[in-house]
Design a protein around this nucleic acid. Structure first.
Length: 568
RNA sequence: CGGGACGUAGCGCAGGUUGGUAGCGCGCAUCGUUCGGGACGAUGAGGUCGUCGGUUCAAAUCCGACCGUCCCGACCA
C-alpha cells in the first residue's frame, strides 16, 4: 500500500475529548473516529488490526475444536422473555418495534440464540460441541468511556460449549482457559486470570482475564508469592486481630456534638480509633431495610454483600429511610438494641468488645459495646473490601491490589439455559438429560485498545507483530527517482514474500514521515535514502527497541521475512 | 440517573464579563526555496459561532429551553 493513496488521517494534537492513552493514540494515528457516544468507525488501519485480532482468536478457538457460526443481530424479544433476561438486562438492551409492531432486540449477547439452535441436539452421542461466532453486540451502556474500552456497539467472539455432564464442561472450560492464555499472549498482553463473582448468571465457576492498566475499571487482588488472584468483588484476605481491652465493659452513651464520621470520632476527646469503632450502614435489600456492620476502618464490598445476601436488589438507604428506621441521621447510627431488623455483621467484628458506635440519636455515641452481647446479629459474612498490603488468604504474604481491564471472561453456565429453553438430549440410558453449557467471551475492539494500553511509548503505538496493520513500513527519505525505484523494488519483493508493506511515498519532510511511522506503530521500518543507497544499504529499525542496523539491499527481503516469521 | 465541564473552520484553541464587519496555531491548495527527525516565504480556500426561542436598532457575546460530548459517581453476565 502506498501511503500517498491511503486514508490515514494522523493528527498532531491529542483529541480534546479523550483521556485514556489508547483512545488518544488510536484517534491521533488514524485508526478510529467517533460517530456518537460509545460508537466508533473503524478506519482502514483500525479495520486491519481488528481483522487480525479476530484472526488470532479464530485460530486459537478453531485449534480447540470450535465450529464457527454467524448468528443474527436482530432477535425477537420473545426469546429473551423465555429466559427472564428481558427483565434482568432491560437497562442495557437496545430495542425497537418492527413494521408489524413486534418487539425486536439488538442482540447484547447470544446465549439464548445458540441455546435455541442446540435444541436440535438429540443424543449424548453428538456431544461435546463447541460453537462460536464473532458478531456485533449492542449494549446501551449508561456511560461509555475511554474510547474503545467501553462502548455501546462492539464485536465479540463468544463461544458456547454443550456437554452431557459437568466433567465435560470442566474439560471445555480448561481448554478455553488455555486458548485464551495463548490469545492474550499473541495480542501482546500480560494477563492475570482471576476468580470473579458469578453474578446473575447463576453459574458455578467464572474466570476473568485481567490486563493490568491504570484505565482499567476492575480491581484485582493479587499475591505475588503464591499466585492467588481474585477480583476485589470476591477477594478475601487475612488481617491482624485487634486486641480489645480486657475486663467488663459497661454500655455508656456520651455526647459527641458535631461528630458525623469515623474520622471525627477518632480525634474526638473520649472517642476511639477507627479499628475500635463499629460502622453501621443501612441498606435496602429486596425493599426491606437491613443493617450492615463493619469495622470502622473497613469498607463494605457491594458485590460481596450481594453475593452473601443472595440478592441483586441491594442499595444504600435514602436519608429519610434511615431516619424512619433508626431515628437518627447517618453519622450517629448503631445496632445496639435494634430489633426485628436483619443485621449482617462482617467477620472482622467477631468477639470484639468495648467498641464504640452510634447511639441512634444525633450527636450521641455509645461506648463499651460487646458485639455478641449487645447486638442481635442475624448473620455473619465476609463483606470487607480487600486493601493492598493485607495478608493473602492462601499464603499470608502481602497482597497487591491494582486496576485492570477485563479482556476476557469464561463461565461455567451449567443448566440454566437448558432448563429455561428446554435444551436436552437422551443420555446413554435413554433418559432425558439437560445439556450443560459454558460461555466464553472476548471483546475484539476492547482487546485492540487494551493492547495499545500495554504497547506504546511517548511517540505512539508499538503493535505486537501478530496484530500490526502492516508488518513493515518502507520510508522514503526523498521521493526522487532513484529512491522511489529502490523503495518500490523492496516493497514488491517483500510483498511477494507475503509481507504486508506500507510504502511511505509521500512528498513530506523526513521528520514528518518518521514521526507518523512511529505514531501508527508499525513494528519494523525500512528507511531508504540517497545516503544509504550510495553504499547499497538501507536502514532497518525496530520500533520497540529503537535499535537500527544497516542491511544490504539484496538481503532486505530475507531479513525481514525472517523477523516477521519469528514474531507473528 | 446525580454532580461537574465543555460545544466557535478538518484538528487544537482565543474572543464572551463591557452586544456593533469572527480571530490564532496546525492542517489544506498554488508557487518558489528547502529536504536523514514535525522547514521557510508568498498567495489563497474554508465558519448556519450546537439547535430553537426570547431581549435588543443590533446577539458568538445577555436570558430561557432543548440537543450533544467528555470527566467523577451510580449502574453494568
Amino acid at each position: 500500500m502506498r501511503w500517498s493513496q491511503a486514508f490515514i488521517p494522523t493528527l498532531r494534537d491529542d483529541p480534546a475529548d479523550s483521556e485514556a492513552v489508547s483512545h488518544k493514540l488510536l484517534v491521533r494515528a488514524g485508526y478510529i473516529r467517533q460517530l456518537m457516544s460509545g460508537v466508533y468507525s473503524m478506519l482502514p488501519l483500525g479495520q486491519r488490526v481488528r481483522d487480525k485480532v479476530m484472526d488470532v482468536i479464530r485460530e486459537e478457538i478453531d485449534a480447540i475444536g470450535g465450529q464457527e457460526f454467524l448468528l443474527p443481530q436482530l432477535h425477537p424479544m420473545e426469546i429473551w422473555e423465555r429466559t427472564g433476561r428481558a427483565e434482568t438486562m432491560k437497562d442495557i438492551m437496545m430495542t425497537f418495534e418492527d413494521i408489524k409492531g413486534s418487539p425486536v432486540v439488538l442482540g447484547p449477547t447470544h446465549e439464548e440464540i445458540f441455546a435455541t439452535l442446540a435444541r436440535e441436539l438429540t443424543s449424548y452421542k453428538q456431544l461435546p460441541q463447541l460453537w462460536y461466532h464473532i458478531q456485533t453486540k449492542f449494549r446501551d451502556e449508561a456511560r461509555p468511556k475511554s474510547g474503545l474500552l467501553r462502548v455501546r456497539e462492539f464485536t465479540m467472539k463468544d463461544s458456547y460449549t454443550f456437554d452431557i455432564d459437568f466433567d465435560g464442561l470442566d474439560v471445555q472450560f480448561d481448554r478455553h482457559f488455555e486458548a485464551y492464555t495463548r490469545i492474550f499472549d499473541r495480542l501482546g498482553m500480560e494477563t492475570i486470570a482471576v476468580k470473579a463473582s458469578s453474578g446473575a448468571m447463576g453459574g458455578k465457576d467464572s474466570v476473568e482475564f485481567m490486563a493490568p492498566s491504570t484505565v482499567g475499571e476492575d480491581e484485582v487482588a493479587h499475591c505475588g508469592a503464591c499466585g492467588y488472584a481474585a477480583n476485589v468483588e470476591t477477594a478475601s484476605s487475612v488481617i491482624a486481630k485487634v486486641v480489645d481491652p480486657e475486663g467488663d465493659h459497661d454500655l455508656e452513651v456520651f455526647d459527641t456534638p458535631g461528630v458525623r464520621t469515623i474520622a471525627d470520632l477518632e480525634t474526638f476527646e473520649g472517642g476511639a480509633p477507627a479499628d475500635r469503632q463499629i460502622k453501621t450502614l443501612v441498606y435496602m435489600v429486596d425493599l426491606e431495610p437491613a443493617l450492615i456492620l463493619m469495622r470502622g476502618d473497613h469498607s463494605v464490598q457491594d458485590q460481596k454483600l450481594m453475593d452473601h445476601l443472595g440478592s441483586t436488589d441491594v442499595r444504600p438507604a435514602q436519608p429519610d429511610e434511615i431516619v424512619e428506621l433508626l431515628g437518627a441521621d447517618a453519622g450517629s447510627l448503631g445496632a445496639v438494641g435494634v430489633k426485628d431488623v436483619r443485621i449482617v455483621a462482617d467477620e472482622a467484628l467477631r468477639d470484639r468488645a468495648g467498641m464504640t458506635t452510634g447511639a441512634n440519636e444525633n450527636d450521641k455515641h455509645m461506648r463499651g459495646v460487646d458485639v455478641e452481647r449487645d447486638i442481635a446479629v442475624s448473620e455473619w459474612g465476609d463483606l470487607r473490601q480487600v486493601v493492598a498490603g493485607e495478608g493473602c488468604s492462601t499464603c499470608g504474604e502481602p497482597l497487591d491490589v491494582f486496576t485492570a481491564i477485563e479482556v476476557g471472561h469464561i463461565f461455567k453456565l451449567g443448566t440454566f439455559y437448558a432448563d429455561s429453553l428446554g435444551v436436552t438430549v437422551l443420555d446413554e440410558n435413554g433418559v432425558t438429560a439437560p445439556i450443560v453449557m459454558g460461555s466464553y467471551g472476548i471483546g475484539v475492539e476492547r482487546n485492540m485498545a487494551a493492547s495499545v494500553e500495554a504497547n506504546h511509548d511517548d511517540k505512539g503505538i508499538i503493535w505486537p507483530m501478530p496484530i500490526a496493520p502492516y508488518h513493515v513500513i518502507v520510508t522514503l527519505v526523498r521521493v526522487d527517482d532513484a529512491t522511489m525505484e529502490a523503495g518500490e523494488s523492496i516493497h514488491d519483493e517483500l510483498t511477494a514474500n507475503g509481507i504486508e508493506v506500507l510504502l511511505d511515498d509521500r512528498d513530506e519532510r523526513p521528520g514528518v514521515k518518521f514521526n507518523d511511522a512511529e505514531l501508527i506503530g508499525v513494528p519494523l521500518r525500512v528507511t531508504v535514502g540517497p545516503r544509504g543507497l550510495g553504499n547499497g544499504v538501507v536502514e532497518l529499525l525496530d520500533r520497540r527497541s529503537g535499535e537500527s542496523s544497516e542491511v544490504a539491499l539484496g538481503d532486505v527481503a530475507s531479513t525481514i521475512a525472517r523477523l516477521v516469521a519469528e514474531s507473528v
